[in-house]
Simulated assay, not measured.
Amino acid sequence: MTAVTPVLPGLKARYLRSGLHQVKGWLAVSTAVYLSGIEVAQRTDGITGDVAEIGIHHGKSFLCLSLDLPVDQRAIAIDVFDNQTANVDGSGRGDRSIFEQNLTTYGAGSNVEIRQSSSLDLEKDGFVEAGRRFRIFSIDGGHTAEITENDLWIAERTVIDRGLVVLDDVLNRHWLGVISGLFTYLGNGGALVPAVFVPNKLILATSADQAKYYRVLFAEQFPGGREKSDVPLAGNLIDVYAERPWLVRDTDGGSGPITGHEPMATIPAARLAELERQLTSAQRERDTTRAELTATQQRLRAATMPLYRKAARRMPWLARPVRPIVRQVRGVLHRTK
C-alpha cells in the first residue's frame, strides 16, 4: 500500500522523487522520507537549530537534512574523506569532491559547513565546547563500539533539549559494533532515550518526555508508515516504522512517486568483497570436485573393462546379456564428464 508523505519544500521533494537514487550510498528509501519529513516537522513545530551528520560518503542522507534549510541555520558535514587512515573499520569511503558536486546539483545552500575530521578528534578540537546547537544529529561514521559510543556522547552534549539523534546500522548484523557501542553508552549513564526505529536507523530523544513527543510526531506525520507500537528496547518503548512505497507531496501542490533504482548502492563494499570471496571459494570447490569425479571415472573404467573383456572371451553366453548394462554405464559416465 502506497503511503503519502507530509507536504515537503520543493528541493526536498524533488530530491526524493528523482535524485535519491542518483547519489551513491546506503539509505533505505523510506528512511530518506522519514528524515526529510521530520526535519520539516520540527521547524513547523517551532524547533530551531542546526543539523549535523558524522559520516557523509556522497551525501545521500545529509541532503535529506540540509536541503531547504533556513539560511540562518547551518548544516555541518563531518567525515574523514580522503584521510582513510582514520577510517579504522573501513565502514565507508567518503569522497569530498563528489559530495560537493551533489550539494551543488541538488541545491544545498551556502550554509553547509564541511568539517574534515575524525569524530574521535571533535572534542579536543572544541566541537563540544561550542555548546548545544543541533536539533538533528545523525551518526553514520565509524562502526566500532568505541567510535559509536564516542559519537553518542558527542551528540548528547551538542543536541538541544527538543532535538533528536539518529543512529545508523544499529541492527545491521555486519556492523555489530554499533549496537555494542549503543548499549555501552546507555550502560555508562547516557541520557539519550530510544524513541522510534525506522529502516536501519534508531532515533533517540533527549529525555523520556521528548521520546513520547517524537513518537506522537512521527505518528502524525507518517500515519501510513508505522508498523508496530510499544516495542520494548533497553527499558524503553519505541515505535517501529516500515519500508513503504511513497507518494511525495510538495508545497506547490504537486505529488509523485520516488523513482529510479540502484541496487548495488545498497550493498556495502565490505559485503561485496565477502560475496566475491564466497563465489571464488565455491568455484574452486566445484573445480576440485569435478577433477575428483573425472579421476574416479577413469579408475572405474580401468577396473571394470578388463574383467568384462575377460568374461566375454571365456563365457560369451554370460557376457551377452550384460552388454546393454555396460553400454548404459558408459553413457552415464560420458554424461557426467
Rank of each mutant, 00 (worst) to 15 (best):
V33R: 01
V33P: 00
Y34K: 07
L35T: 10
L35C: 03
S36R: 13
G37F: 11
I38R: 00
E39T: 11
E39A: 13
E39N: 13
Q42D: 06
Q42L: 12
Q42S: 07
R43M: 05
R43V: 13
R43I: 06
T44Q: 05
T44D: 07
D45Y: 05
G46T: 11
T48E: 15
D50P: 01
E53M: 07
E53V: 15
G55Q: 09
G55C: 07
I56C: 05
H57A: 04
H58T: 14
G59W: 02
G59R: 11
F62A: 13
L63G: 00
L63D: 04
L63W: 00
C64T: 03
L65D: 08
S66G: 03
S66W: 07
L67C: 05
L67E: 04
L67K: 15
L69P: 06
P70Q: 11
P70H: 07
V71N: 04
V71G: 04
Q73H: 08
A75I: 08
A75V: 02
I76D: 10
A77W: 02
V80Y: 04
V80W: 01
V80I: 05
F81H: 01
F81P: 00
F81V: 02
D82H: 01
N83H: 03
N83M: 03
N83S: 01
Q84L: 14
Q84A: 12
T85Q: 04
T85S: 11
A86T: 08
A86N: 02
A86W: 10
A86V: 06
N87T: 01
V88D: 11
V88S: 12
D89S: 04
D89Y: 10
G90I: 15
G90C: 09
G90M: 13
G90R: 10
S91T: 04
S91N: 06
S91L: 11
G92F: 05
G92H: 00
R93N: 04
R93Y: 02
G94R: 00
D95G: 13
R96E: 07
S97L: 14
S97C: 13
F99N: 11
F99M: 06
F99W: 02
E100I: 14
N102I: 11
N102Y: 04
N102G: 02
N102V: 05
L103M: 07
T104W: 06
T105V: 09
T105F: 02
T105W: 09
T105H: 04
T105Q: 14
Y106I: 03
G107A: 05
G107D: 04
G107S: 08
A108V: 03
A108I: 03
G109T: 08
G109V: 05
G109R: 00
V112F: 06
R115P: 03
R115V: 07
R115H: 14
Q116C: 12
S119N: 07
S119C: 00
S119D: 11
S119T: 01
D121Q: 09
L122W: 09
K124W: 06
D125K: 13
D125A: 02
D125C: 12
G126D: 08
G126Q: 10
F127M: 10
F127A: 06
V128D: 15
V128T: 11
V128F: 06
G131T: 07
G131M: 13
R132V: 10
R133Y: 09
F134T: 01
R135F: 08
I136D: 08
S138R: 08
S138T: 15
D140W: 15
G141K: 10
G142W: 01
G142S: 05
T144R: 11
T144N: 08
T144W: 09
